[in-house]
Amino acid sequence: MTSVIVGATARPYRSDTMIEYRIHGRGGQGSVAAAYLLASAAFEAGHTCQAFPSFGAERRGAPVTAFVRIDNQPIHLRSQVRTPDFLIVQDDTLLLDRGITDGLKPGGAMIVNSRRSDEDVAEAFSCRTKCIPATELALDYIGRPIPNTALLAAFLTMTGHLPVDALAAALKGRFKGAVLEKNLALVDAVAGMVPAGAWKESEDA
């Protein structure tokens, strides 16, 4: 589909390389910020990206969903992510809704902010699951209960999808001074806590 009749913008647009994410959290936890950070990190690593919230009437504590697409070519699709490759869950009480993994692609995985064990959480779901006590880590390192930096650091370390450096670069675009330093220290700490590349396989699949 390349010929052009009037005006002219013919572009290739079939994509088999797109990776889609869905982020679940609660209002005030920085879920939209997490989506923007992940997209910024993808951009820093040389990819195209798209991140957007699920456009609800947001209020503190209410479930919030955000979406990210990462590709190596222009992203035309604008609909909500229905079949994510990965889930990032910022609050483990959201797991009470069993539908949270709806649409997750076969071979997909879920990273959860939780003090529970991986096995405990995975039992109720049929996907690979990793739990990180991201709120506690955020309190320790940043002094605020915002789990997104820790979750993204863990996620990128495990998937190897983007270099963790790209997340650091994205954080540098968003924060300055002491807040930035604390976030970067948190990224380093988390990167040492999870098995690097453990989810890389599905990434290449």
């Binding site: 589909m1 390349t2 010929s3 052009v4 009749i5 009037v6 005006g7 002219a8 913008t9 013919a10 572009r11």
Partner: peptide
């Protein structure tokens, strides 16, 4: 460009 007035894509 932004496609002037309109643009078309696809087979002739």
């Amino acid at each position: 460009g932004c496609g002037g007035l309109l643009t078309t894509e696809g087979p002739k």
